[in-house]
């Protein structure tokens, strides 16, 4: 059973967010609600989420945030831990499917109406970037909650003992680089293989900066994508090919640095 969420028109979300970017967490907590007069549901694709279900998600996300210092100032370390926990929570409790999640208006409702206080808490400072309330690319880029849901969805592997192992092991910079590259992230089997191979390579070649290894290997995989259809291969074959890419990338980086 999947749920449909209210969609807040982006022009309205933007106006709301402009008024929220500098407010305090407490002020936004008081302004948060579970409905908006301009928000509408899609006609098909699941059951409309009920107000009490929205209130439940709101509470669960806040409870999760409290484990990481909400409403007090969040540190870089705890914010990363919150992202992982919240991504898993959203993917398990929202009963959202990718078709519905691909609408930025769904995420605009969550950030601007349901949980603006958590957005402001997660991205503190004199003001929070408007992008954290709106975002782009299905919510995957910059939207505070959209990016967490998509990461958890794309990187989970149901057959593993811990389906969210990759989400826990990758650091923020890895996640941004991996999930924002559509050619790799569009295919779950390829993304899982790429992330697994990366984590294996980074253990073997810990003298190479993570970012460099990831970036250079990504370039190689994207080149291969124009001649190889990874999606049609068995997971073990994909992993073998990607392991090989990381091995060659690492060796070439090491040779270059020597």
């Amino acid at each position: 059973m999947y749920l449909l969420y209210p969609r807040l028109p982006l022009a309205i979300a933007e106006k709301i967010a402009q008024g929220y970017v500098s407010q305090s967490v407490d002020q936004l907590l008081n302004l948060s609600t579970c409905s908006h007069i301009s928000a509408e549901f899609a006609p098909t694709g699941g059951n409309m989420v009920k107000p009490n279900e929205l209130a439940q998600i709101q509470q669960q996300v806040r409870d999760c945030a409290k484990l990481y210092s909400y409403p007090n100032l969040v540190s870089d370390d705890t914010s990363r831990q919150f992202d992982t926990a919240c991504g898993i929570l959203l993917s398990q409790k929202m009963f959202l499917h990718p078709s519905e999640a691909s609408h930025l208006e769904v995420w605009a409702f969550i950030t601007c109406v349901l949980l603006p206080d958590v957005v402001r808490w997660r991205f503190p400072g004199d003001s929070t970037s408007l992008e954290r309330f709106i975002g782009s690319d299905r919510g995957l880029r910059r939207n505070t909650f959209g990016r967490l849901w998509w990461r958890a969805y794309l990187l989970s592997e149901a057959s593993w003992e811990d389906p969210y192992l990759l989400l826990r092991e990758l650091v923020e910079d890895d996640l941004v680089q991996i999930t924002e590259r559509n050619s790799i992230a569009a295919s779950q089997p390829l993304l899982i293989a790429f992330s697994t191979a990366f984590l294996r390579a980074i253990r073997r070649y810990d003298q190479i900066p993570r970012r460099t290894l990831m970036r250079e290997a990504s370039k190689r995989v994207r080149r291969l994508l124009s001649i190889i259809s990874f999606d049609a291969l068995e997971p073990a074959t994909i992993l073998g090919l990607i392991d090989d890419v990381f091995e060659k990338t690492a060796k070439s980086l090491m040779a270059f640095s020597n």
Partner: peptide, 20 residues
């Protein structure tokens, strides 16, 4: 060799394969 059907969607940016 393998003959396979493939799909992709512009809205979700997801892609995958069908029967092989």
């Amino acid at each position: 060799m393998r003959l396979v059907t493939a799909w992709k969607s512009s809205g979700t940016f997801l892609r995958g394969c069908g029967e092989a």
